[in-house]
Design a protein around this nucleic acid. Sequence first.
RNA 1: GGCGAGUUGGCGGAGUGGUGACGCAGCGGAUUGCAAAUCCGUGUACACGAGUUCGAUUCUCGUACUCGCCUCCA
Length: 454
Amino acid sequence: MIKLYNTKTRRKEDFVPIDETDVRMYVCGPTVYDRAHIGNARPVVVFDTLYRLLRHTYGADHVSYARNFTDVDDKINAKAAETGRSIRDITDETIGWYLDDMGALGALEPTVAPRATEYIAEMIAMISELIEKGHAYAAEGHALFDVNSYEKYGALSGRSVDDMIAGARVEIAPYKQNPMDFVLWKPSTGDQPGWDSPWGYGRPGWHIECSAMARALFGDRFDIHGGGLDLQFPHHENEIAQSCACCGDDSFANVWMHNEMLQVEGKKMSKSLGNFFSVRELLDQGYAGEVIRFVYLSTHYSKPMDWTDKKAKEAEATLRKWRALTDGIEPSASAASTVVDALADDLNTAGAIAGLHELAKTGDVAGLKASAQLLGLLDETMGDWAKIDDVDLSTLETLISIARSSAMESKDFSEVDRLKSALLEAGVEVQMSKEGVVLSAGPNFDPSKLEGLK
RNA sequence: GGCGAGUUGGCGGAGUGGUGACGCAGCGGAUUGCAAAUCCGUGUACACGAGUUCGAUUCUCGUACUCGCCUCCA
């Protein structure tokens, strides 16, 4: 039995799918105007892990996972204006980057990845429906959601409309009946992307996208809706208002899940502060995607996670060890129950990793491999970073063996030590035992440093 | 100002109403010519103050501190 913490009820609950043969999960995807930064990647890894667990539990063919691409947005427009490139050109390129970068982190592609611009008709239909039902109104080329018409507005994030207005950080616009009313449709001018609608030529607001796409793909009700905690308000609150006002209070997602935010070296990362970096930059710096994934999984998704270089180094060492241990090993038929149980307990990935350590310690390498793969780790396709070049060191091995043998007689080990330190300096691992000397290339092996060794 | 989260050993990080996982580092030992690797062993850590309880790190309240959201952001 999978248990998940449901933001909507603020409790950990048994997960009961609406239809076990079609478990449906929707996760808010990126606005495609730039490379994904490492904060963007956290929900991707979190919900990818949940997706894997659901597939493991209900069968790979019985889980649908949708993650949208927001390809109509003012940030994209701004980028187009700035670069002189077409919007489609920018969004296509960015989507390509996104899939590459997230793929490098071992994220499976969702079963559907809808682009907002392909669902404009559904959005217009949904807005029309909201207006008919008295939950929205048209004004000056806009369509706006009337928050007073939906009494549960604020339930997800635990805010009341009055509190929010008191907070006073809302955009006051003359065409709004209530300051908290949010845009469903807004007018487009000039070179802004736009479509004809009953409210005039324009484009959709951000929130209506997810409501309309989730409905089009999954129907009025589905199982899980995920995203970052920062989306809880206003984005998810508005999605709920739109969808439930349109389709009924028991509609939309049964379970809402939110991952906590990510920091870098103890500091908040944000675009406005400019202290963020992209997944691609991290990969280019030599952090393997698998290592990044491991770091993410080592903290529970509901807690803030700090990205630090130290953690990445530790993760790398652990993975290198496990890769060496499981190299060439056929994974066992199923993941270990300790690992599955940890994941089933509200996606306790840190506990699952502890389970992997246990398997490694007890020597169950087949189980380790199978269990790690459930977490998207130790996958055959992701291991190139840990591969050590197969270098022929037999000549040097012989050389140092002979030197050592004579040193054993003479008790003068200076020559052996000289060779050994030179080898270590070159990144060669040196193992001496009764059986002899074994040399192997380590992760920092540098052949050029062996040149002068004789 | 409104809303919310967190505070566990040197570091990271799970978990639990009844002798506090796991990883890294450290220390001791085995092994080694010395090392490395490996193996074995090793730490009286649950912010503070009250309350509930036979018993609280775990529940409740308060205090302090940290952090997040409320504004494009995952």
